[in-house]
Amino acid sequence: MHNKVKRYYHLKQKHKEIEQELSDLRTEITTYCEEQGVTDLEIGSHRVKIVFQDRKEYDDNKLYEVLADPSLWRMLSKPDSSKISSLIKLNVISGEKIKDTYSVKTITLLHVDKK
C-alpha cells in the first residue's frame, strides 16, 4: 500500500505540473493568435482554432431578489447556469424575470487537433 500511496502522490504532483504547463501553453498560443489577428491557423501537422463563447455569471443577491420563493431558491441552491437554463426551458421561471441578474463573460476556448 505504501507504494500505491507514494505513486498516487507522485501522479498528483505530475498532474499539477501538467495542468500548469497546459495553462501556460494555452496562454502563449492564444496570445500568438490574437497578435496575428487569426482564429484559425495551421501550424505543421496541427490545426489551431480559437472559439469565443459567452457564459452567464449570475449575481447571487440580484437573483435571490427576483427568485425569493424558497422552493425555487432551494432548487438552485447555488446559481448554476445549466440549472437556470433548464428552469427557463421548463417555464418554471421566465428569462425576462432574471434578465438583470447576470453579466455575460466571453471566454476563449482553444482547440488543437491533428490534421
Rank of each mutant, 00 (worst) to 15 (best):
K99F: 05
S45N: 10
T106E: 07
E21Q: 11
K89R: 11
R7L: 08
Q36E: 14
S82G: 10
T27W: 09
T30Q: 03
S77K: 14
Y102R: 01
G44I: 03
I50G: 04
E17N: 08
I18N: 00
K97C: 12
E34R: 14
L109S: 12
V5F: 11
L90Q: 13
L67T: 02
K99A: 06
D100C: 02
S45V: 14
D100K: 14
D54G: 13
D69T: 00
E17M: 11
Q53T: 13
S71L: 06
E17R: 06
S71C: 03
Q20S: 15
H111T: 12
A68S: 12
S85P: 01
E28L: 13
I43D: 07
K56Q: 12
Y32I: 05
Y102P: 00
Y64T: 12
Y32M: 13
K99M: 08
S85L: 11
I98E: 03
Y64N: 08
R26L: 15
N91A: 13
I29L: 10
I88S: 03
S23N: 09
I93M: 00
E57C: 15
V104R: 05
I18D: 00
E57A: 07
Y64I: 15
K89H: 11
D100T: 04
I93R: 01
T101L: 04
Y102H: 04
I84K: 02
R47W: 10
H2F: 15
R55Q: 10
S82V: 08
E42V: 12
P79H: 02
F52V: 09
E28W: 07
L110K: 05
E19S: 09
D80A: 09
S23I: 07
M75Q: 15
Q36P: 01
R55A: 11
K89P: 04
L67Q: 03
S85H: 10
D80K: 04
C33Q: 00
